[in-house]
Design a binder for these strands. Structure first.
Length: 859
RNA sequence: GCGGCUAUGGCGGAAUUGGUAGACGCAACGGUUUUAGGUACCGUCGGGCAACCGUGGGGGUUCGAGUCCCUCUAGCCGCACCA
């Protein structure tokens, strides 16, 4: 009996699938479709364990759905524009394009080695001129619909990457890739009107019932819809220049308007700038405010500070009441109108501010049960429910009706109106980079910004960009930017900004439905395949990519290019692959492969293989090059084969959780692979057909039960549980070996093995084929249908029922499946082991849960 | 601060969704094979001598709770002076 040899079998089966073109996706009208997509990789050049896990997860679903009769689309491509290529170019003087395509070639080989059921005929990279040319067409379509605009505005500038970033790409005040502290700069920028879709993007979250709750919540918070009132205060004296219509504020608590004691404006509010112009003290205060950091810790500890501008406004409901306008450091210019009214009694920040500057604090919401004569908020603002008081026409109302009444009154006075405000800002998409999709417009001295006609597309990147120094290589190219204006024919300058790479990934899933289409999206193909039925990727894209893709889909739907309004019907966010970290005594990181672990009792120790030096075992962390805790997939493939590696990453933890890579773990998977092969190899290929007898029936029942369990486990993303059932079943087969078995058992085993080979197909596809062939399966597993189970055979004929007395387990009995309570009770009462515990007790009640359990209540 | 999630043996995790807690794997321990073993195979494996006790702590509902309710604690993730 030969040991299983993955080095020989695995490439052979991959070749067989490839030759049979097994994974080509086809539009078959009579068949249900299923589109499985994993987030496409950035071609860094090396496959890591995170990729192995991500693509193995998707492959399980793809192979499973294919076997279940779906026409499956499971494509692969490359998110290939972006800064790493430019950095490599700058550091090593290589050409970004050549560097990227070399990386793609290497990673393609590694991915193919994983044995994924991918339709490689649909492969593309976002840096293919065909793809980004189509993206330029799409950009022009959005432009024509008024969803693209240019605006001079404050933008996030990453001084290291030397480019603008979207709000979503700034994390804790730092660039998401470079980690550099982001600066504010005033630039002329390209924006997509994602805020036009803010309502839909919020509302439609409720339709995404196969998305993780967590991601929906994160998106909802990011969009940050709030409903309230926008209105303008009239000035008590003469209105400052530019404020003839008053000072506009936004509030979600119009019900507390009578509790207002001041008006606050942001330090960069135009009115504050006016104050600074005439008063050096105001200017100094504003400068002080701007110094404050944006980090979490700094905001938490920042004290409320204010500066009274001397400007005074009138209360909208009582012109005799006036409110001073303060510049305050806790008000943000880019939310709402950059100005608020302060109601200290019912807002903690306003209260802190009022206490510091001795402003009045008037409660206007009376908590239930409080005495209006004595109620006082003290040091803590009251934000709970209650009845409005001290508030003129609002007195006696509850909060919600009071909000409505206040809005009605303001609207009647023509001072403002109910308003919805979003935290979401428009998406700044221009990047000052040379390795990206050029924006297809020109700047003409006579005609201004002119979009190019589609006939001019693609606007290809020049091949001789010079990336040796920082900054935009396109901008400094000697000739590329010179173009003719399509309107007047005169000389014009090409836009040298390129599109954010997140634009590339916001529609690639639609392009996969027809990668050869002469227009961006082939409507028929998109209508057949979209939406993506199961999308799989990391949680880190919960807001960025997933929000942009949703926006793009809605925009394209409104443009008639797709029919769906949501791109991803199901989303699964998988956990990371982690590993222990190791350090020398000197503090330097050490790679796992250089470390030997020894175990004494419950204590694990590590030392260097090289010289036995003591190594400190650190935390388990995400595999990363900087922590030296990576394990190279190709080395694992070389030792244990691809199937063992796939099996381990799928079996160890539930897919949504982080999984800890361990050599011992993959060895366990490897043992399973070998045990499976042994079992198939020991089965005579020509077993008899007769299937009866007790032992044979037991094997058959177990087979059908297994089929049911594995099917359900895959359907519900509980791959680790499904694999555990497969392990269990193998143990059972070993207990009923082929050697010396009756013809009936041999036949039952044959059925079991043919089923087993198909059930392991999604997890260990190569092993599945080898096993299937060994016991005479017809064709290949990838062509075979998923095994069906007979519900009648998934249940045991005889049930072991635990018997409890007063909730404590006192024994067990055997009863036929489906036995009636009376019948079961009779068996129980004949069991001396159980009745022993009932001596001297009176039976009050006997609870029999059919096929489950018996509980006797006695006293 | 707000929102979300999690807590089960030495470890990763199961538990038919209210019905035998600890499946399956890893580690450990014992054994067999082997010239040898960081191989393979077989066995043991929550705690306790036992009655019993055990799913982060406390309380509750129930014949019965890892699962439902209340409460507390710890940890993780996301967001945030958002008006």
């Amino acid at each position: 009996m030969a040991r299983y040899n993955p080095k020989e079998t695995e490439p052979r089966w991959r070749k067989a699938w490839s030759e049979a073109d097994s994974f080509r996706a086809e539009m078959l009208p009579g068949k249900p479709k299923y589109y499985v997509l994993e987030m496409f990789p950035y071609p860094s050049g090396r496959l890591h364990m995170g990729h192995v896990r991500n693509y193995s997860l998707g492959d399980v679903i793809a192979r499973f759905k294919r076997a279940r009769g779906f026409s499956v689309l499971h494509p692969m491509g490359w998110d290939a524009f972006g800064l790493p290529a430019e950095n490599a170019a700058m550091e090593r003087g290589v050409d970004p394009k050549a560097w990227t395509y070399e990386n793609i070639a290497r990673m393609r080989d590694e991915l193919k080695e994983l044995g994924l059921s991918i339709d490689w005929s649909r492969e593309f990279a976002t840096c293919d001129v065909d793809y980004y040319g189509q993206q330029q067409a799409l950009f022009l379509d959005l432009f024509a619909r008024g969803l693209v605009y240019r605006k001079e505005g404050m933008v996030n500038w990453d001084p290291v990457d030397m480019t603008v970033l979207a709000n979503e790409q700034v994390v804790d005040g730092r660039g998401w890739r470079s980690g550099a502290v982001v600066e504010k700069r005033k630039l002329n920028q390209w924006f997509l009107r994602i805020t036009d879709y803010a309502d839909q993007l919020t509302d439609d979250l409720t339709t995404l019932d196969r998305w993780p709750e967590k991601v929906r919540v994160m998106q909802e918070n990011w969009i940050g819809r709030s409903r309230g009132l926008k209105f303008a205060f009239k000035f008590a004296g003469e209105a400052p220049a530019g404020f003839e219509d008053g000072l506009e504020v936004y509030t979600t608590r119009p019900d507390t308007l009578f509790g207002a004691s001041f008006v606050g404006i942001a330090a960069d509010h135009p009115l504050a700038e006016q104050a600074a112009a005439r008063d050096p003290k105001a200017a100094a205060f504003i400068a002080e405010c701007k110094k404050g950091g944006a980090s979490q810790a700094e905001i938490d500890t920042a004290e409320k500070m204010g500066f009274n501008t001397g400007v005074v406004v009138q209360h909208p409901f009582d012109a005799s009441r006036t409110l001073a306008v303060w510049i305050a450091n806790f008000i943000l210019m880019d939310y709402g109108t950059g100005a608020i009214f302060g109601c200290p009694a019912h807002d903690q920040r306003d209260l802190d501010f009022a206490r510091k500057y001795g402003l009045s604090v008037t409660p206007v919401v009376l908590p239930p049960g409080e005495d209006p004569a004595t109620f006082d908020v003290g040091g803590e603002a009251y934000t709970g429910p209650g009845t409005i008081f001290h508030s003129g026409f609002l007195d006696g109302l509850e909060i919600e009706p009071a909000k409505a009444a206040a809005i009605d009154r303001i609207e009647a006075q023509k001072q403002g109106e109910g308003a919805t405000v979003f935290r979401l800002r428009d998406w700044g998409v221009a990047r000052q980079r040379g390795w990206g999709c050029p924006i297809p417009v020109v700047h003409c001295a006579k005609d201004g910004v002119v979009p190019l006609p589609k006939s001019a597309l693609p606007i290809a990147l020049p091949d001789d960009l010079e990336f040796g120094k920082p900054g935009n290589a396109l901008d400094r190219h000697p000739s590329w930017k010179h173009a003719a204006c399509p309107v007047c024919g005169g000389p014009a300058t090409r836009e040298t900004d390129t599109l954010d790479t997140l634009v590339d990934s916001s529609w690639y899933f639609a392009r996969f439905t027809d990668t050869k289409s002469p227009v961006p999206i082939d409507k028929a193909a998109a209508d057949y395949w979209l939406p993506v039925d199961q999308y799989i990727g990391g949680i880190e894209h919960a807001v960025l990519h997933l929000l942009y893709a949703r926006f793009m889909t809605k925009a394209l739907a409104d443009d008639g290019q797709v029919s769906v309004r949501e791109p991803f019907a199901g989303l699964f966010t998988q956990g990371m692959v982690t590993h222990e970290t190791y350090r020398r005594q000197s503090g330097e990181w050490v790679e796992p492969k250089d470390v030997e672990i020894t175990v004494e009792g419950n204590t694990r120790r590590a030392k260097l293989i090289e010289n036995g030096a003591e190594v400190t075992i650190g935390d388990v962390e995400k595999m990363s090059k900087s922590k030296y805790n990576t394990v190279a997939p190709e080395e694992i493939f070389g030792v244990y084969g691809v199937d063992a590696a796939r099996l381990f990453v799928l079996s160890d933890s539930p897919p949504e959780r982080d999984t800890v890579w361990s050599t011992a773990g993959v060895q366990g998977a490897w043992r399973f692979v070998n045990r499976v092969w042994e079992e198939f190899d020991s089965q005579p290929a020509d077993a008899a057909a007769a299937v009866d007898g007790e032992a044979a029936l037991a094997v058959r029942r177990a087979t059908h039960k297994l089929t049911k369990q594995v099917t359900e486990a895959i359907d519900s993303f509980r791959f680790n549980s499904g694999i555990a059932r497969l392990y269990e079943f193998l143990n059972l087969l070993k207990a009923n070996p082929a050697e010396g078995a009756s013809p009936a058992v041999l036949a039952a085993r044959r059925e079991a093995l043919l089923t087993f080979a198909r059930l392991i197909g999604p997890f260990t596809p190569h092993l599945a084929e080898e096993c299937w062939t060994r016991v005479g399966g017809k064709g290949m597993v990838v062509e075979a249908s998923w095994p069906e189970f007979d519900p009648a055979l998934t249940e045991d004929a005889v049930r072991i029922l635990p018997v409890q007395v007063n909730g404590k387990r006192r024994g067990e009995i055997s009863a036929p499946a489906g036995a009636e309570p009376a019948e079961v009770e009779k068996i129980v009462m004949e069991d001396p082991e159980i009745t022993r515990h009932l001596e001297g007790l009176t039976i009050r009640k006997v609870i029999v849960v059919k096929d489950r359990i018996v509980n006797i209540v006695a006293a």
